[in-house]
Design a protein around this nucleic acid. Structure first.
Lengths: 192, 192
DNA sequence: GTCTATAACCTGATAGAC
DNA sequence: GTCTATCAGGTTATAGAC
């Protein structure tokens, strides 16, 4: 793999686990098997620019999971519940590492790193847009689709947070049941 | 106010805004109007111990808000929706500062600071216990009450996260509607 | 383009005078 | 108990040899 790709990947992994403030450039360099100076050759913007690239690539990758996880299920509620259960299994199986660097980082830098906050906002907006398009395609009215994807995303990020703190699958499983039940109350969705 | 209380309060405020890794002891000292050395006189455990104390005090304060916010409303669903709307208003009015240091910190230290992770887990567990007791007192069956408080907490923490990233009330408002609709599907809850 | 060495500064923590 | 001065090691970022 190319050096700059290794750097971005290492940063994404470290952001996921320990956030932005606690992640050092030298730590990224070690994890990417690159010397310190080489990092600034590839990313003149330094730490911030690497973090922005890491968030963007993982953000783009994650939204593609939504159709992959929900398409196999005949109706949305059971699909959502299964997706949350799969996320819970993944977390338990990987030592409760967070699934999403955007979630780990967003809260911590929202007031102190305006550029990164804007990147996080773009990613979330892209998730909402793509997600509500998908849900509308499965039969939800447009405004309901938008509410539903927000409900799904907030529950998922909050579920990651509590599951990680408690080292338990229960928060994610309960959140999945709740989102599924909510979507089931929306028109047409019950068998969409 | 006593010096040690000022230190804990300053730490809580900084944790809320920028998380654990980015918060320095000297920064806490400045915010608390205390010299660096004085901090280690009051808290021999240093940064970790102060952060633990800050999380515990704010965690205890937050769970007391639940009855205050929900008691005035005749049924749970409208109460929940109003509480999320109030949280959204608060965030918008305070420049999108996070409402909850536990949320900002939990994700970032879960793998790197075992002691603090355990503190966060205790706090979440106390929230779940007190919250499900309250919801059971409002008429929900016990297992439903536990699911419902998890749904509420995950949606709230995730809502804070997305609202902060997007600087928008929409994530919290949508999350509130979803949790309210979910609780309305539970037995007895519709008019509890 | 890759890598070493280092600048300038900040970190958590401590020792010890007041 | 309060505060100053400082330690050893970390930080981001850069300059310049290879």
């Amino acid at each position: 793999m190319q050096t700059d790709q290794r750097i971005v990947r290492a940063m994404a992994e470290l952001l996921r686990v320990q956030g932005y403030g606690s992640t050092g450039i030298q730590q990224v360099a070690r994890a990417a098997d690159a010397p310190t100076g080489s990092i600034y050759h590839h990313f003149r913007g330094g730490k911030r620019e690497i973090a922005a690239a890491a968030l963007r690539t993982t953000g783009a990758a994650y939204i593609e999971l939504l159709p992959l996880l929900l398409d196999p299920h005949p109706d949305l509620p059971t699909g959502v519940e299964a997706a949350f259960a799969a996320a819970a299994e993944d977390m338990a199986g990987t030592g409760w590492a967070n699934m999403c660097p955007v979630g780990t980082v967003a809260g911590e830098i929202a007031d102190t790193e305006p550029d990164l906050r804007r990147v996080a906002a773009e990613i979330v907006t892209s998730w909402v847009d793509a997600g509500s398009r998908y849900l509308a395609g499965r039969g939800l009215p447009e405004t309901d689709a938008r509410s539903a994807i927000y409900a799904l995303l907030t529950s998922l990020e909050g579920g990651f947070l509590l599951a990680r703190a408690q080292r338990s699958t229960e928060p994610l499983l309960a959140a999945g049941r709740a989102v599924a039940a909510y979507i089931a109350t929306l028109p047409v969705a019950a068998d969409a």
